[in-house]
Design a binder for these strands. Structure first.
Length: 133
DNA sequence: GCATTGACGAAGG
DNA sequence: CCCTTCGCCAATG
């Protein structure tokens, strides 16, 4: 009984760590993580920009969903560098604490005011532009 | 199976 | 400007 319980938990954990779409052979999640890991310290990008870069321009929501599972991804994903198109920290509630995301950004050298990134346009890092198409 | 739900974003009023 | 609607699609009940 204990063994079964243990194995079920293990399977669940593995699935969380390596999420993948059911309809496509590649992992959309993994692609998202790879892009986010390219974001330089001190710069930020948006869900839509990542979606656009991956070719699924209209599926920014899926990027957000991917970030939801990013906690278990390795190597680590700097999730704090992904904000919405207006530079707002809409995902802050999904971090360990209410202020964690802002603290991480501050550590990156980014100024946050009213849950919004100061000079967002200057800090913005577009994968399609920086990594090429 | 079907309806609902999002860490989104564009478009229209 | 602010608000609503809609497209998007995996996950969940």
């Amino acid at each position: 009984m204990m063994v079964v319980f243990y194995l079920l938990n293990m399977k669940k954990k593995l699935l969380e760590e390596t999420p993948r779409t059911t309809t496509k052979e590649y992992s959309f999640f993994a692609d998202v993580y790879d892009v986010v890991r390219q974001v330089p310290k001190g710069r930020v990008t948006s869900y839509g920009a990542i979606a656009n870069f991956l070719g699924t321009k209209l599926s920014a929501r899926m990027v957000g969903w991917a970030m939801n599972a990013a906690h278990n991804a390795r190597p680590k994903v700097p999730a704090q560098r992904v904000v919405n198109r207006n530079g707002m920290l809409t995902g802050k509630h999904h971090f360990e604490t209410e202020t964690k995301m802002e603290e991480l950004l501050k550590n990156d050298g980014i100024v946050v005011k009213n849950d919004t990134i100061v000079d967002f346009k200057i800090k913005f890092w577009d994968p399609a532009k920086e990594l090429g198409l």
